[in-house]
Amino acid sequence: MKDIIANISKVFENRVRLGIMSVLMVNESYDFNSLKETLDVTDGNLASHLKALEEKGMITVNKQFIDRKPNTSYSVTDKGIIEFRQHLKALEDLIREQ
């Protein structure tokens, strides 16, 4: 039981972060506004969680201009993939334990 808890990553222990990672795991990249709509959260809330995930090296940010409008999109890093998989596995193990 202790090992399982150790694998539950603190970084992902939040509904919004879990959502961001879920979306980025199955999409090559996803832009800010689409993320906002999919997760149904406010700008500020989403931005702060994205920032946190970026600082932990889980996601990368790609800023570009489309029709002279800024467009920010996000992708998951290799590290993010590994750690999120670990987190998922820990969650599944927890369910089995219960």
């Binding site: 539950i8 222990e13 879990l18 879920s22 199955v26 689409s34 599944e92 369910i95």
Partner: peptide, 23 residues
């Protein structure tokens, strides 16, 4: 959700988001 006490709900939410965001 997002609570350590309820991993089943987390997993369900993750699956739903993966499906909805890619299809």
């Amino acid at each position: 959700m997002g609570n350590r006490n309820n991993p089943a709900e987390d997993i369900q939410a993750i699956r739903k988001l993966m499906e909805e965001s890619s299809r």
